[in-house]
Amino acid sequence: MDDFKRAGNAVHGARRVWVPLAVVGVLLALTAVEGLLAKALPDSEALAAGTVIEFGSDRQVSVQVGEGWTLDKAASDVNSTLVFRQGDVAVQLSSIVFSAGKPDGVDQMWDGMARTLKIEQYAGTDVWLGEPTGFDTKSISGGLYGSLQVGTAIGTAFVMPAEDDSEAVEARVLGPFDADQGHWAAATQIIDSVAFDDEGDA
């Protein structure tokens, strides 16, 4: 007696061959269609000079872009991360809320960022983070920045803490070695425009 040829459910006989093939086919088709749709749509959106975008879980961080920037919509999530591009230079801003454990000052924030960069190292990407140096912007004081290399891209990493250290914005400005100097300067202006809501209100 062959147990498997006795129909205990509707998937018997030839169906036991084509049903699983159809299931795998549907999953493959779903993967392909979603991939094609993602490719068919434009990745980025050109931003007008002076555009202000609020982001973060409560839209508590704002940033203003200058002329010539595009927003990489595929890589951005208004709840946490924005990615701007101009030429070969990319600016990534991440809103960090320290809900699990509040850091004891900006140095710990920097150390935390250094630890998260190790994930990329373990994934096989060359990552190098230089020693941090203090800096202030027009809205934020007590930030740190340092040289950053990720793969073949070079640039700068920034940590910009909120006044009460309950949150921060981490930024990466990266591009190729020979990127246009004007783009680097424009990226610096973006970093300089970052502000937390409460600081802006004050």
Binding site: V97, S99, P103
Partner: peptide, 11 residues
């Protein structure tokens, strides 16, 4: 990562 790597265990 979203909490900045500050207190990984707590996160």
């Amino acid at each position: 990562v979203t909490s900045g790597g500050v207190d990984p265990f707590a996160a």
